[in-house]
Structure formats: C-alpha cells, structure tokens
C-alpha cells in the first residue's frame, strides 16, 4: 500500500487523486470537505484550523493502516489543511483506491469519520459577532 499523509496550507485535490491512481485498482472514492457558509442559519465569515501536527500525522497514518487491513485498500491519501479558510475552500481531501468500489466507499467513509474522532485538529468559526471553537462546549 502507498499512503500520502500531509498537513498543508492549501489543498490540491488532484494531488490526492493522482497519488492513489494505479492499474490494479477498480475504483477511487474521494471525499472533499469544504467550508460551509453558515452554521444553523448564522453566516460564517471564515474558519481557522489549528493542529498538533506531529500527533495529527501519526493518527492519520493509523487511519491509513487500518483502511488497508480492513478493506484491502491499495492506496490512500489523506490531506488536511490548517490556517484560515473561507467559505467554499477545501479543508480536507481523502482519496482511496481499492480493487472494488464497495471497499473504496466503505474505507473512505471510515477514514473521514475516524479523522473527525481521533486526529488532533481544531476549528474556530468566525461569525459577524464573534468566534467560537467548534464543539468545545457541551
């Protein structure tokens, strides 16, 4: 398995897709997370992402290894952005190549769901009247 694990300031989605392409694969599934322009009806001006980068990379690598073991994923790319992001901009891209589409869909869903639960990255949401760290409080 080849894996590309990175934290960057600007996402290049085609880099992730090109990385996982191979003649052995029957399908590539890609998830691209982008900045939504509102939260519960309140306009979002921008987001700011911060990471504990060395640990975040290790947790992303764990996700890649588990995807390989559980779904026979051939190649996987997980790239997350940090810094300021405006509505519509890309924040995360995950590309998964597997022999068959079922495995690629399942592994890609696993990767983004697990990233949200285990990878030390935080986002601050900026509104017209202030800013909050997302999900910090109950």
């Amino acid at each position: 398995m080849r894996s590309l694990i990175k934290i960057v300031s600007h996402i290049q989605t085609d880099e992730a897709i090109r990385f996982v392409e191979s003649p052995e694969s029957g399908g590539i599934v890609t998830f691209i997370g982008t900045v939504r322009n509102q939260t519960q009806g309140k306009p979002v001006l921008k987001l700011f992402f911060e990471s504990y980068e060395p640990m975040a990379l290790l947790e992303m690598e764990k996700i890649a290894r588990q995807a390989a073991v559980q779904w026979n994923v051939q190649h996987i790319a997980i790239i997350h952005a940090t810094g300021e992001k405006l509505p519509g901009e890309e924040v995360v891209v995950i590309a998964v190549a597997a022999p068959h589409r079922g495995a690629a869909f399942a592994a890609c869903q696993y990767a983004i769901d697990t990233l949200k639960e285990t990878v030390p990255i935080w986002k601050r949401e900026f509104f017209e009247d202030g800013a909050v760290w997302v999900a910090a409080h109950p």
Binding site: Y52, M55, A56, L58, V92, E117, P120, W133, A135, A136
Partner: peptide
C-alpha cells in the same frame, strides 16, 4: 491528555521529559 503523541488514560504514569499535550474536543474535517 496525550503523552508522547498518544492519547493517555488517567492511570498512565508520567516521566520527566515526556511530551505532554492538552487536547480539547476535536473538530477537524
């Protein structure tokens, strides 16, 4: 709390020189 870049339970011993990080609720992705 993460110790040496791994999530740690409350029972885990701490040693001098450990890399210790306080991790609030995550919100990546």
């Amino acid at each position: 709390i993460a110790v040496n870049k791994t999530y740690a339970g409350d029972a885990q011993p701490l040693a001098e020189g450990d890399e210790v990080a306080v991790i609030p609720p995550l919100s990546g992705g």
